[in-house]
Amino acid sequence: MKVNKISQLYASILVNAIYAMKNYPITLINTLLAPLSILIIIVLVSHGALLSVSIEGALIMTMVSGGVSLQGDLSHLKNDFKLQDMVVSSPTSAFMYMTGMAISEIVYSLPAFIVLIVLAFMFIHTTIVGALIIFVILALMFAFSIALGFLLSTLSSDIMQNWAFSSILSIILTTIPPIYYTINYIPLPYRYIAYLSPTTYAAEIVQNAIGYLPLKTSNLIADWLIIIAISIALFVIVMKKNRWRES
């Protein structure tokens, strides 16, 4: 039989996103609420001054949340349902399974995306180059978080561990970094803590692209290099450490 690769990709999207949303429509609201709730608070507190920054922050958060969710979803399907064991012993490769699962996280976040992209078109005024930079950064953040999520899922064997990983990741990637506002709002000594998170660099680049955060060219280049280096390093680790067929 000729193996249909599209089917294999689609299977993960169905299991982890479409069927979950179809059978439990409440999940649609859930994915929408998390990024929007922080956006609304920031906009209210800043009297609308940080609207466009908050929208890009919500977009970054949605992308990064994909990886946080992925590690939980992968572990859940692997440890609690043994689905991954069934897939390993099938014609599906690790790459197809992981790619499908990664896409499923985007599909799962679609309600939030649609609302945020409409808001971005309405309130973020930038050039085509600026829009391209935002797109590339969002894609990089997604790739980074997905790689991190996959790595953690292969290391975890228990739901308690997953919850701990999810909380820690959320704090490091979306709470500590100034993604809904510019880094200037953080008092100087504490800014260094924010720089421990890769999302801080992503936020700086995007905020610069929409004209909210002036940055020296050298700082901008450094931000890009750090994000790209972290993403590549993480992918290398994932390639070496991932355990599709256990040893």
Binding site: V3, N4, Q8, A11, Y19, N23, F81, K82, S90, P91
Partner: peptide, 22 residues
């Protein structure tokens, strides 16, 4: 192994067959 709770039997079998490349 357990049947994934948020799926129906039809969805469970169908998605597995997609994984097998049908």
């Amino acid at each position: 192994s357990r049947a994934v709770q948020w799926l129906t039997p039809k969805q469970t079998v169908y998605s597995y067959l997609l994984y097998r490349g049908f």
